[in-house]
Design a protein around this nucleic acid. Structure first.
Lengths: 216, 216
DNA sequence: TAGATTGTTAATCGATTAACAATC
DNA sequence: TAGATTGTTAATCGATTAACAATC
């Protein structure tokens, strides 16, 4: 069902369902139940059922969801059917890797151009223009860009964020390992490697400790 | 205080504190309060205070925490003082970008080697060897590697994960956009761009809707 | 001493899970 | 019809926030 308020926790699980549904083989049955999805992804079936109910009303008792329909509903909910224009700042290795990744169009994301403090080329590997950062703000305004992707080193990130906001941007995807100060209404989504590493590290510490216990 | 059970939510916030503390200028006062930290990061002060209390007992009323001490306590808690050896599989653009990023040593992470199904060179840009994936399992065993970083395309990821587990690995940092099936005891940390994009996309959809409302 | 800041105990909030009724 | 699966309502769990006592 559309229009309901959705929690961030639910929202973050949706891409997982979507991905699984989209990568199912053609030969698979046209319908899928919340239970089946839950088992495949190692999740609780009640949770999956509730999540799906938030974004689709195509579920039928005994049958489940029509896969095609469910995919459409999730994509519509996530806004992947509308294209979002974005700019990327910092044409270093990570930036280039992101630009080269063609998969973003699947998520309705369209990177128009890259910006860099010291552009080393006129175009990225995949043919998008690379401009000097001084043109960032103006470019965002004229192209009505709503999203900026920051892949510059930590030192320059806040300055870039300020420029983006001056250019009228509403959301920032931040790969720089630093907290960005932004006004209310601007969303900063941190792609935080450090967070992931912390989770991994603590797990491994516990693992090592455990092994030592056993050896005793 | 050491030894307490820590929740994942707390754990995920620690790297943020650590990063802020480490990037403070030398000239800053030697002590910092939970309140000051909270304000700087735009968080609730009670939450920060409680989080810090989980990892350090160096807090003193009226004074706060000695910065150096707090940094050490967090790093110790996260296990950054112990070095973890890792391997990376998939020496494509993203893989190379990660290998080239020197910052991982700060987190106690040491990438020993890269593996690829079709190695294009003998060494990465920063001089680490690139081997054929057929040697992956054996390498992990002989070097007692505990962590694998997967940067191969989705299709190959499960196979790589299986090899890693066969090699005795205990944690996987997965950049492939796919759900990995692993036995209990193995941690998979998904670095999920799709999740971040979903959050950003939904925010922008709401933003666009709002603007249209205003124009009416 | 007075006041800032800590750490703890209790109250609130939100999300997950369990139980159950509805339905194809 | 019987049973699988849905969606909903209630119970549990965990995390956040608020209130307060302790302390330097």
């Amino acid at each position: 069902m559309e229009g309901k308020k959705i929690s961030k926790s639910v929202l973050k699980r949706l891409p997982g369902y979507l991905n699984y549904l989209k990568t199912m083989p053609e030969s698979a049955p046209a319908h899928i139940s919340a239970t089946a999805l839950a088992n495949a992804l190692g999740m609780g079936e009640v949770q999956v059922r509730k999540d799906l109910a938030m974004v689709s009303d195509g579920g039928r008792p005994k049958v489940g969801y029509l896969r095609e329909r469910l995919i459409d509903d999730i994509e519509q909910f996530l806004g992947y059917d509308n294209t979002t224009d974005a700019v990327l700042i910092g044409a270093g290795k990570l930036g280039q890797a992101l630009m080269a990744y063609n998969g973003f169009s699947e998520y309705g994301l369209n990177i128009l151009a890259a910006f860099d403090a010291r552009p080393k080329a006129e175009k990225t590997d995949d043919g998008k223009p690379i401009y000097h950062v001084s043109k960032l703000s103006q470019f965002c305004r004229t192209h009505k860009v709503l999203m900026g992707i920051i892949t510059v080193p930590a030192e320059g990130a806040q300055e870039v964020a300020d420029q983006l906001i001056a250019g009228g941007i509403k959301a920032i995807w931040n790969f720089a390992p630093i907290h960005l100060d932004v006004p209310a209404g601007i969303l900063v989504q941190n792609e935080n490697m450090a967070t992931s590493l912390a989770v991994l590290s603590v797990h491994l510490q516990a693992q090592i400790k455990e092994e030592k216990e056993i050896k005793k």
